[in-house]
């Protein structure tokens, strides 16, 4: 077993996650990652590539993405234009086949990491259309009658935000890991990785406040890890003292815009702060 992902100095991976990555890499199965937004799903692929010293091929999925685009695209428009201009290239159809991310992965010299980001954004049939390619690690190019076969089975990481259910047949071929929202201790580790010289008291106060906000019932968009890190960045940049984080005369935490992204949430929070102040009097 050559691969052994152990997190990197910029990314705190839980032991569960490391094991899931290593299992998927060793058995060459795609690894499906789900979890709350902002828990570092997409970053994982980048860090796996960095940690194992492999190149990353990212394929970001949009609602209009078709499975075939991951393999290759036939650029009919260029060919049409070239035929009008009398370009000699036009006689070889191979000149107009544009390789997609999967093709590039399959023909890479060393084992690459392939990220299929936000697979749930695509059409319902999208994952099913990829089954054969992921199973066989090969596909045919109809236009040129070639078969592209993977020279090294890539490590495939797929992320999903759970907007759609994925088909069973697809799930059966994947390994699955759900990234939990980190607990306070893991969160402190994550913050330490990003801000090594953050004052201890500011950090613990900020974390308390952050988890308090997450626990407020009815909040529409719970702040996530990446938002916490942005907020801390701001706090540091503004040099906010730790005391002001739990001062009572302010309705909202300082620089709340980084944490609360929805005006209903801000109103809710103001109301709660008002009520708690009234309750104290």
């Amino acid at each position: 077993m050559s691969v052994e992902f152990a997190g990197t100095d910029r990314y705190v991976a839980t032991d569960d996650l490391k094991l899931a990555v290593n299992a998927a890499a060793t058995l060459s199965r795609p690894l499906l990652i789900k979890g709350e937004p902002g828990t570092g799903k997409t970053m994982l692929a980048e860090e796996v590539a960095a940690g194992l010293g492999k190149t990353l091929h990212a394929w970001h999925i949009k609602s209009t993405t078709k499975a075939a685009q991951g393999l290759y695209e036939y650029d009919a428009v260029s060919r049409l234009r070239d035929s009008q201009l009398g370009d000699a290239r036009v006689h070889d159809i191979g000149n107009y086949i544009v390789p997609g991310p999967l093709w590039e992965c399959f023909t890479a010299d060393a084992q690459p990491v392939l990220l299929i980001d936000e697979i749930d954004k695509a059409d319902v049939e999208f994952p099913n259309d990829l089954l054969r390619e992921l199973d066989r690690m090969a596909f045919d190019v109809y236009e040129t009658r070639q078969t592209i076969e993977a020279r090294h089975r890539p490590i495939i990481i797929i992320t999903s935000n759970n907007e759609k259910e994925l088909p069973d047949a697809f799930l059966r071929r994947c390994f699955f890991h759900y990234i939990n929202f980190p607990d306070k201790d893991t969160m402190a580790d994550i913050v330490a990785v990003h801000f090594p010289d953050l004052k201890k008291r500011l950090l613990s106060d900020a974390l308390d406040l952050f988890f308090d906000i997450r626990a407020v019932p009815g909040i529409k968009k719970k702040p996530s890890t990446s938002e916490l890190i942005d907020w801390l960045k701001l706090l540091l940049a503004e040099d906010i003292p730790a005391d002001s984080l739990h001062s009572t005369d302010n309705d909202l935490p300082p620089l709340h815009g980084a944490l609360l992204k929805n005006e209903q949430d801000i109103h809710l929070f103001e109301r709660l702060a008002f009520m708690s102040r009234r309750g104290r009097r």
Binding site: D15, L19, A20, A23, L32, L171, C174, F175, F176, Y178
Partner: peptide
């Protein structure tokens, strides 16, 4: 436990 869950369960 983690390995079994990763392999066998595909829905949180």
């Amino acid at each position: 436990y983690v390995l079994a869950r990763t392999c066998l369960v595909k829905d949180e």
